[in-house]
Design a binder for these strands. Structure first.
Lengths: 187, 187
DNA sequence: GTTATTATTTGACTTTTGTCAAACAACCGC
DNA sequence: GCGGTTGTTTGACAAAAGTCAAATAATAAC
């Protein structure tokens, strides 16, 4: 089911609602390794990822590049705090491959929630989905060993494993790259 | 500034808004070590914690009690996923001391968002605040050593340290209790 | 294609963290 | 205030994870 159909089915969109929505999402193609959002800037846009893959990352206190999220096909690409509150972002979002996205600006999204009230519910759903994902991730970091975290990751995201550099997976899991290499050998 | 004043000041509440609000929050006193929410149940209530302290916890796959949050005076006590979506909770919430709370049920909260639209914004604020807190926590678990996590914790929450059993702080930080004891000796 | 860059693996070693068991300390309920 | 329960510390040890440096391997840029 595509985007339009799911809006109609799950959020009761009318044809008119869909038109207001579609006219505000603009298709765009980003080359590989290009920044969608840079830290320090206010997130002015949100994207639906039609194809390709992105990741978000921060720099820790030793300036290490730490991956905090992976975005794959079908994901909503957003820095929640920065976009929702219009404050400078702590995180960067960068493409890992060429990406096809549908982009909406903060202003257009404001219009849209005015015109199509169901967009409030969608936004709430997205926020809650992201919150739950983060909660699960947090509990995993809190309770699992490095090896367990990696094994769970490949089980849940075999597709990401194929397409992303191991060093990004390592930092995402909070594991040193050399340690991850040894974990991989041992299983 | 108390609750009423901040609603008037930050959310433009009228006297009427306040009355609708106040009549739906019921004061209650919970004894120490009593469950506010038990896993498997749907969270029917949300509380504002006037005094006392609570924690949320889950059981991991080895049935260890893992603390996931501390709630202190002034916090909103809620299991977000369970309350917002009205699904069974994975987490438990329990008092650590006698607590004075103001409680509102899910139904009353629904009424309130209908009568006082600003409550939508407040709910959004609370959700975002919790999301940001979780994001910070997650990054700490991902990037800091056990000792660094503990030192940051005592710096940010000296008050909790005084009032909560070390084993709960240990599980919250993802550290074995014996290891935490040694970390404490070393600093 | 070739070279330069970047990513991954591996070895040798150190440090950090966990495990198990026992001792000690604090707290609770009667 | 006593006895039992629960919480914390400690020792001896084992396992997990990190560090540094070098060797390979893979990839990107020309």
């Amino acid at each position: 089911m595509d985007f339009k159909e799911s809006l109609i089915q799950y959020f009761g969109f009318s044809e008119r609602d869909w038109e207001e929505t579609a006219s505000r999402f603009l298709p765009e193609t980003l080359p590989a390794r290009s920044l969608f959002l840079e830290q320090g800037n206010i997130a002015t846009r949100l994207a639906y990822l039609r194809s390709g893959m992105m990741r978000s990352f921060i720099y820790d206190d030793q300036a290490n590049d730490i991956t905090t999220q992976f975005f794959k096909q079908g994901s909503v690409v957003i820095s929640m705090k920065s976009f929702n509150d219009q404050v400078p972002s702590r995180e960067n979002i960068i493409t890992l491959e060429e990406c096809e996205i549908d982009v909406i600006t903060y202003e257009r999204m404001q219009e849209l929630t005015g015109l199509v009230p169901a967009w409030r519910d969608i936004a709430k759903h997205v926020d809650e989905f992201k919150y739950n994902a983060l909660m699960n991730r947090s509990i995993q970091l809190q309770t699992l060993t490095a090896s367990e975290r990696y094994q769970l990751f490949i089980k849940k995201h075999p597709d990401i494993l194929q397409r992303v550099a191991l060093k990004h997976i390592a930092s995402y899991l909070g594991i040193d790259i050399a340690t991850l290499s040894r974990i991989r050998k041992s299983i």
